[in-house]
């Protein structure tokens, strides 16, 4: 695998490190106003982080377009497959963040339980073409689970704008 094999990942990596560089400089800068006890750690950490980001950016600049220096597997994480590193792969994954935002929006309006009833079958049927019965069964099972967790473990679910207008268990 060459570094240029995944140009989107490479550009995003550079952008991410630049964003972190700005963050570290901001942390070290903002910490100047704190008391000594609260200042010591953020100043040193911010400066160290900024220095590391500069080193990483230089490394990226020097090794740009070259073969990857090492064939060592990235042992920290399971690797990402090649087809996920294309523009289509990124858009596909981002679309699911869009679905998640939709879930949040539904929760904000209807509360978590009713949002789940709407979201889960919609996702399964519209996005994955799953059978209606299976989708409804999963949504039903989830509602039961949510109600049981509220009852037995005293968990609380996010309430929506329509809270109080809907019957139990929503």
């Amino acid at each position: 695998m060459t570094q240029d094999a995944y140009p989107i990942a490479r550009r995003l990596r550079t952008a991410f490190v630049v964003a972190l560089l700005i963050l570290f400089i901001a942390v070290a800068w903002a910490a100047q106003d704190f008391r000594l006890g609260a200042r010591l750690f953020p100043v040193y950490i911010g400066m160290a982080g900024a220095a590391l980001c500069v080193i990483e950016l230089l490394r990226q600049l020097i090794t740009r377009g070259r073969q990857k220096l090492s064939d060592e597997p990235n042992t920290a994480d399971l690797s990402v497959e090649a087809d996920e590193q294309t523009a289509a792969g990124y858009l596909r994954a981002l679309s699911f963040f869009g679905w998640m935002l939709g879930y949040y929006a539904l929760t904000f309006v209807f509360g978590f339980t009713l949002a789940t009833v709407i979201f889960v079958p919609s996702l399964l049927i519209l996005r994955f073409r799953a059978p209606f019965l299976a989708s409804a069964a999963i949504a039903g099972g989830l509602v039961l689970l949510i109600v049981a967790l509220q009852y037995f473990l005293m968990l609380r679910v996010p309430r929506g704008l329509t809270h109080g207008m809907l019957p139990w268990p929503f």
Binding site: V17, L52, R59, A76
Partner: peptide, 10 residues
């Protein structure tokens, strides 16, 4: 951090 030690430390 596997093959990316500097990124890991960052």
């Amino acid at each position: 951090s596997g093959s990316r030690p500097i990124l890991g430390i960052i």
